[in-house]
């Protein structure tokens, strides 16, 4: 069953087309990777799904068109922090949990302990380190047990323990019929976590499938990084650039 359906998605910023007729689907029990170079349209696609930018086309979450009703079906970790910086983490979680109408706060407390931020929950978010802010962002996306997790570079700044916890949580989430849309620049992580991957470049999806299917498509035997660089036309010239710099 499809948890997320994106059909013919177009996102424009003025005259610039950031996402150009993109279509894909994320099924339950699946971690779907959305990979692409900087400025390829990954974050714009994600922002359209979570309702941050206007778009043309069709986006559905569990069969419902995106809108206020689908916001409780999504847990979103943005690439850039979207936190109320003068609140403390505890106040921020309280606000998010209240707006999402969560009755049981034990989940929030468990997540706070799991990510080890008990000592920082009473300090304004603005004063926290990047890693701790990322933990606050991740916790606020998980507190309402959404069927769809949309994680845009979620491991940025996380320490090894928290990264492992988040990766395990993603695996458990899909085992319980949830779905994850995952965006990252770290190919090794994508390779180890994702069931299927879409490669986006210049606003268009240029390849989609399992890692084996992508390797076949790119005619590359190596790692996902090799496949990705080949597909996006960035493979050539890397050695020459490094030689020239060093």
């Amino acid at each position: 069953m499809s948890v997320l359906t994106v059909e013919d998605l177009v996102v424009r910023y003025g005259n610039t087309v950031a996402v150009d007729h993109v279509s894909f689907r994320v099924d339950e029990g699946e971690i779907f990777g959305l990979l692409g170079p900087n400025g390829a349209g990954k974050s714009s696609t994600i922002k359209a799904i979570v309702g941050l930018v206007d778009f043309e086309g069709k986006i559905e979450v569990l069969g419902k068109p995106v809108g206020i009703e689908t916001k409780n079906l999504i847990g979103y970790v943005p690439e850039e922090f979207m936190l109320l910086e003068s609140l403390t983490p505890l106040e921020f979680f309280e606000f998010v949990a209240s707006v999402r109408r969560i009755g049981n706060v034990e989940k929030v407390k468990t997540l706070i302990r799991a990510f080890g931020i008990e000592r920082f929950v009473n300090r304004p978010i603005a004063t926290l380190s990047m890693g701790t802010k990322q933990k606050v962002s991740v916790i606020s996306a998980l507190i309402h047990d959404p069927p769809l997790l949309i994680l845009d570079e979620p491991l940025n700044g996380l320490d090894a323990r928290s990264s492992r916890i988040l990766k395990e949580l993603m695996q458990r989430h899909v085992e319980k019929s949830g779905a994850v849309l995952f965006s990252t620049h770290i190919m090794e992580i994508a390779e180890s976590l994702c069931d299927r991957i879409a490669v986006i470049n210049k606003g268009r999806i240029i390849a989609e499938g399992t890692i084996e299917e992508l390797k076949e498509l790119a005619s590359v035997e190596g790692s996902l990084e090799d496949v990705f660089l080949k597909l996006t036309g960035q493979y050539e010239g890397i050695k020459e650039i490094v030689d020239a710099i060093s």
């Binding site: 505890l90 706060v105 000592r119 009473n122």
Partner: peptide, 11 residues
């Protein structure tokens, strides 16, 4: 930096 009671009031 201080440990505090994890108290959340949902409204």
């Amino acid at each position: 930096v201080e440990e505090v009671e994890l108290k959340l009031e949902i409204s």
